[in-house]
Design a protein around this nucleic acid. Structure first.
Lengths: 209, 209
DNA sequence: GACCGACTACTTGACGCCGGATATCAGCGT
DNA sequence: ACGCTGATATCCGGCGTCAAGTAGTCGGTC
């Protein structure tokens, strides 16, 4: 069990390291390759943070400028390559991300927290709308997945897509279930002691994530 | 169907509006109340962004300073109250969040994308670790939920907790399933045409979300 | 064959939000 | 007196977002 202190490295940083492990590239090419491979579906990508992240990877010594090219009068481009420490940190961070769930704050949680301020009928309709939207996304992603598998990709390299589909379908089912409970009156539409001016006074372990 | 342009309002902003709907408060009290009610489990809260968010809510006219208090030599505190437009925007944004899923970029997706750079045995162990961690979180949250229900809260006001538990359990099951497939060799540990230097050239609709 | 416009390649800069650290004072325990 | 903890707010550096800026390239037009 490695018990090292958690390194701070964004998903975008990871992706850069992975690409540079393949071959040296300049930042723009990194972005183009990520798009080509649909990595930007799962990792937030835009040019601003790309260059910024590349800088900070360089400062950390995980990548180094390998060469500067100048074609015609275009802006000079810097080609980076991965260092050994970069390779090491990549594997370490990937391992940590997989092994250790981290607290995330999805928007939908906030929506649910405040759902009781809406009427029951409205809420149930909105949930049904969400379920339909999720269904559409799921169908689209499934289609893409099938195509890619048919095109010679392995499940292993598309596992994040498989995961996203599973996640979305689970959410869709949960949302439908709740919408149904609301319309059937099985989810009582009444606030408890914590609502309105009533304040919760009891103590209970404030659980972390 | 309201077809208004999407307003930009963070979950923290929503939470502030909700609290001020109950009664006027000053920012520090907002934070304390959110903590008391465990809202910070689902909404990212820290003082920096709290004051910032309050400012921007004021600029938007959704809240207004109601009064300034000064006790002894302490910093002056400003008490805010909700306006009518604030009340309206709150309901609108909650509805939008519920009805419309939005693209999110969880860390775990990135971990999965790069999992194939680890060995099969390692990956499967790490996934099992994650499953255990998820199990622990799920147990803790379930316990809290039971306590709160027993304490007089309704399911309706705890629905986001119920949702989080369902989500975590679904992920736990998925992770275990994949770990099992790996150890049984059912998830072929081999990269396809998109790996290494091989570059993907085929076209396929770049699906959004 | 010279010019125009649209498109791609490539980077930088300005600006705003976020989170963590810090400052200040009160009250309380010892 | 001393030092903690709690109350209350602000500050600053980093990171992300968006958009502008400059060069080449390609396709068409008179």
């Amino acid at each position: 069990m490695t018990t090292e202190v958690s390194v701070d490295l964004s998903p975008l940083g990871l992706s850069i390291l992975e690409l540079l492990n393949e071959r040296p590239m300049h930042p723009y090419e990194l972005a183009a390759t990520m798009r080509e491979r649909h990595h930007d579906e799962f990792i937030r990508l835009n040019f601003g943070s790309l260059y910024h992240t590349v800088d900070s990877l360089e400062r950390a010594g995980w990548i180094v400028p390998a060469e500067k090219e100048k074609e015609g009068n275009r802006p000079e481009r810097t080609i980076y390559r991965l260092t050994d420490s970069g390779r090491a940190i990549f594997l370490q961070v990937v391992s940590e991300i997989i092994a250790q769930p981290r607290r995330e704050y999805p928007y939908f949680s906030a929506g649910l927290m405040f759902m009781h301020h809406l009427g029951a009928a409205t809420a149930s309709q909105l949930l049904e709308l969400r379920a339909q939207a999720l269904q559409a996304v799921s169908a689209k992603l499934s289609h893409i997945l099938d195509e890619l598998l048919a095109g010679g990709h392995t499940r292993l390299t598309l596992i994040e897509l498989e995961h996203k589909i599973a996640t979305i379908e689970a959410e869709r089912d949960w949302v439908r279930k709740i919408a149904k409970e609301i319309t059937e009156g099985k989810l009582e539409w009444r606030a408890g002691i914590d609502s309105g001016h009533e304040r919760l006074r009891r103590k209970h372990g404030a659980g972390a994530n």
